[in-house]
């Protein structure tokens, strides 16, 4: 998936707050359903940035003990990958370690925090979420 250069130019100039807000709102909505046993103590007060390398932008978020919240840089840990590669990881089409070996995914800062997040995503069973979606969409997203 290649993003045309003019689109990149536009996207990279947009403020990061709106997409981040959308992300943390979504996380807060699904949190108890996806991670019923997880208290996120390890994420409390820590800042995570997911940088989108091909768009020169990203989202930075944190957890305040109750909710996921928007955060500012600098982050404690920074993931960096292309938008297409994030999508591949999210759909479990590729193992994140594989992308790391291929230098398509990088992690800088607090490696342990990054690993914890990666392992949480790996351990997440997305089925409870899919159950909420209308049928046609569910079959398209099925992992």
């Amino acid at each position: 998936m290649n993003i045309p250069q003019p689109v990149v130019a536009v996207l990279s100039r947009l403020p990061e707050a709106p997409p981040t807000l959308a992300l943390v709102t979504a996380l807060n909505l699904v949190r108890r359903r996806l991670w019923p046993e997880e208290d996120f103590a390890w994420l409390t007060g820590r800042r995570v940035r997911m940088a989108i390398s091909d768009l020169a932008c990203g989202v930075t978020f944190s957890f305040d003990g109750q909710h996921f919240v928007l955060a500012s840089q600098p982050a404690d840990v920074v993931f960096s990958a292309s938008l297409a590669d994030y999508w591949i990881i999210a759909r479990r089409q590729e193992d994140p370690d594989t992308l790391f070996f291929q230098r398509r995914l990088t992690i800088s800062g607090d490696t342990e925090l990054g690993l914890q997040l990666k392992n949480l995503m790996d351990a997440t069973d997305f089925e409870p979420l899919l159950a909420f979606l209308p049928d046609p969409l569910r079959s398209r997203l099925a992992i």
Binding site: R92, Q93, E94, D95, P96, D97, T98, D122
Partner: peptide, 10 residues
């Protein structure tokens, strides 16, 4: 065991 479900499946 440290790898993702995608690795295990493959």
């Amino acid at each position: 065991r440290q790898r993702s479900p995608a690795y295990t499946a493959e």
